[in-house]
Amino acid sequence: MKTEDWKAKLMDYLYDELNSTEKKAFEEELARNPELKEELNSFRTSKDVMENWEDEKVSAPPFFNVQQSEERNSSQNGLKWFLSIAASLLILMVAAKFTGLEVSNKGGEFRIALGQQMQTENQLKKNDIEQMVSNALANYEEKIDTEREGNRQELEKYLAQQSQQNKQLINRYMANLQESNVDMMQTYWKESNEQQQVYTEKLLTNFAGYIEEQRKEDMDYLFAKMELMESDKDLFKIETGQMINSLASNQQEEQAY
């Protein structure tokens, strides 16, 4: 019968975690209980199968490694800084020794000398320095004025040249323009004359035709009028005759009475 105790013992035996007494007792029970033995064997089979599954081969991600190396370095940072500063000071001291470096600070003056100390007697005084500065400034101003005058003259000369060149250029341009205008006007007048002549001749020809036509029409009109006058004269003659006859007849009748 499986009890929780036997299940626990079975697991202990499977993983060889029983002491010798317990192990012996369990093996005796196994010999007596084939069902338990069969179960143990089946578990061993499963265990053997599972044992064949190997682990994945992995290593810690780079983040952890970086952190590790940085942190390893940081633990020695203090010592490293101290050694660095000490080494720098040593190098400076050795260099100062070989170059004869002398540093002094007295009388409000801070001096650094390499090889030989500076002679203060040879130093310039404040007035000398001011004089030198004012001389240098005066020389500089004079130089600037000279340069400015030279530049002005050059500029004027350049402007005069440019002006002369511009005048010549304008004159030449105007002369060319005038010549071209004259040519153009001559050509225009010539062309215009010819065209007007042709036009006048054409106009005269047309006018002569018109006059001829007008004369012909006037003559026709005159002839028509004259014919009308002749017919009127004939009619007047007839009427006059009739009137004379009438008057004559009337006179005869009066005489009869």
Binding site: D55, V58, A60, P61, F64, Q67, Q68, E71, S74
Partner: peptide, 28 residues
């Protein structure tokens, strides 16, 4: 707080812990 020691622990234990989790989830 020795981070170097912590780094060493990570390096030593990472494969074990990863493989435990890998078998637990079945997902890398």
């Amino acid at each position: 707080g020795d981070t170097y020691a912590q780094g060493e622990l990570v390096r030593e234990w990472y494969p074990r812990i990863y493989n435990y989790a890998f078998k637990y989830f079945g997902d890398a």
